[in-house]
Amino acid sequence: MSLARFLLRRSLQGIFVIWGVVTVVFGLRFIAPGAPENVLLPPDVSEATRQQVAAELGLDQPLYLQYFDYIVGLPVGDMGTSLVTRTPASGRVLSTLPATLELAIAATVVAIVIAIPLGVISATRRHKPADYGATLFSLVGISTPNFWLGIMLVIIFSVQIGWFPSSRRPVGIGIDAILADLVALQLEAAASGLRDWLYYITLPAITLGTYFTALITRLTRNGMLEELGEEYVRAARAKGLPETLVRYKHALRNTLIPIITVLGLQLGTLIGGAVITERVFRWPGLGTLIINSIQARDWPVVQASIIIIGVGFVVLNILVDALYTYINPQVGEN
């Protein structure tokens, strides 16, 4: 099957998934307590004003019409207006998305850079101190809750030692700013921007990435052990291939095929799951926005956030599957 057909089919499936997400998210508003118009109005307002505001927001329409309006607006990016700021909800979500993506990608990079070498070392030194150390690390990493780890890191590295900030990241620090400096050839500004960026992102990235790192370490170790026991490894040794090639060209390659899938899917989880970490570090991302919006009953922004996370998840899924067929020749054929 050609890649184009594959992508088309998966995209069609994806649209149905997103439709489901939209419907559930739309319904959530009616389960949650508190009418949206109350957010905007002081408690002692007259019933007439209340109804007038509700009409302005379209809340007096029958449910199916509200639903229909909402759905029709989505393809053109209209996700309603924030009740708090009176600006488009999609705009508010998209403006916080880069910070969350930065965090998720940084956490993934931390995981890849640490976990894969650690897993390989662990597997090739099985039952030696390095292996026990790595196994202990993954056990601890998998069982440590995010919020606790984040708070501990802040206490130790920000409050006690003072290596990293405990304050909210100021506006103007981010990958986009660094890239802009680079494009403008302002290398010094870019370098200092990068320094600031690392200063603020290190602790949140470690917090968010620890569980993930531990998980990938385990997967790599077990996958590697399994592959090293395969007959093709023995055959590769039998033809005189040096151990480095046997391990890293033959065994690691097959180990990484399933891990790439996990990496891709986990990136989606990280975007949605950064809420707690963002809260701990007051990271100016999507998670913070969602929590603030829920507290303010700003339903359009909550809905828009969840839908955008859903879309991101579906797109990542499709990309991971496409990548999988590319790197695993056996799947590509069928």
Partner: peptide, 11 residues
Amino acid sequence: FQDPMSSLNPS
């Protein structure tokens, strides 16, 4: 080896 299917790297 006995089983050529598993004696070559599938990828």
